[in-house]
Design a protein around this nucleic acid. Sequence first.
DNA 1: CTCACATTGTGAATCCATTCACAGATAGGT
DNA 2: ACCTATCTGTGAATGGATTCACAATGTGAG
Lengths: 219, 219
Amino acid sequence: MAEPIPIRQTAHRIPVQTIGRLSLYRRLLLELSAGGMRQIYSHQLASAAVATPAQVRRDLMMIGFTGSPRKGYAVDELIAAVNGVLAQSVETSVALVGVGNLGRAILAYYTNRQPWVRFVAAFDRDPDKANRIIHGCRVYPFEQAEEVLGREGIRAAVIAVPAAEAQRVADRLALAGVRSFLNFAPVRLHLPTGAFVDDMDMSTALDRVAYYARQQRQT
Amino acid sequence: MAEPIPIRQTAHRIPVQTIGRLSLYRRLLLELSAGGMRQIYSHQLASAAVATPAQVRRDLMMIGFTGSPRKGYAVDELIAAVNGVLAQSVETSVALVGVGNLGRAILAYYTNRQPWVRFVAAFDRDPDKANRIIHGCRVYPFEQAEEVLGREGIRAAVIAVPAAEAQRVADRLALAGVRSFLNFAPVRLHLPTGAFVDDMDMSTALDRVAYYARQQRQT
DNA sequence: CTCACATTGTGAATCCATTCACAGATAGGT
DNA sequence: ACCTATCTGTGAATGGATTCACAATGTGAG
């Protein structure tokens, strides 16, 4: 199992888009590997990921993974290489803030899906929700945020609170050491430089989809 | 009420990113307008939207909306102009496919949030779920998709089914005339050119967030 | 062993969104 | 009525991601 995975350097900064596609590649590769595929060409992976072969090769180049002409890429080694970049073999602890409809659906969605990330704490303002366990995740009152985040060493959080509260929540999490946010609230967060935010703005997404339903255009 | 809103042309094609920001601007402006604000400068809107003033001016230029030096933009006229672009004053009918945890949360989330889009039908493979009403939306068995989509003139759909089924569902919807998709399944969909897909890939998003929690870098 | 050819790895070209920077405009002050 | 300060509108510059295109590679066939 200790094969030398062909990696040259993880040197330069990897763009966010590439990180996102690596996550997708890994999901596709895991399925293909389970189906018995040992080698894969850039054009095959590209077609599965709805991308171009050049895009795939460029992405793999970014993480310093190399294949072989005529044989393509070794599937399992590639999975290991992507794991090395995305998860550095450590499980990442994540917190959820906001245990409403959306928050519970998020917990349900992620449970047993990505073993490399774990929701170790959820928070809610409503004390009635506290101290319950939802989808295997303990819910705390939001007042205990600093304590729990510190204790668990949490540096990533998912925000699923109403728009009006999102900024306050983000401020407090940032102060408590969280540097990476997945934000479901339909507002843009002001955060200290160095922090990372990924907005999952469903309102905006629905507006975009409604717009293009009336146009006839484009990807 | 019949003020002439200053619009020059909706001529050229508006990039997706701009459409997304227009949706955000509208949300912010509606709130500011309700709070009594009549005029707004590009730098104020930019700060609310976490963008640059130049970005805001460029976006408004794309939709042909003009303001005035020293007074900025008229808030209510700008809202009307954005409405004209995004919703063309028509309510858009949308379907949901997949009434699981996520699907129900999506319905709950959108209810009473964006009156300009309406979920007029939901579909699920499971017949037990059919013919119920969830958050004001009637659930049909998926077999009736073509009939209902045709009857309601639906051209936009939200896909919230498991990954393994997403492509089949998308194919069938596309054949039934749906041209615009909001895809929550963690796969990329192959669709006829001309169709629009917006991927809300929560798996990928969580991987990105986990990645940057370990780095110390950047938005 | 040699050859042919499909595939990789990557510099260069292209494309597209964002930002810069400034000319032109105008509201408000005097 | 004029002047000034500050904003808009936009052509040009920038920056970054994607795509092109091709030399280098090495595999499998004969």
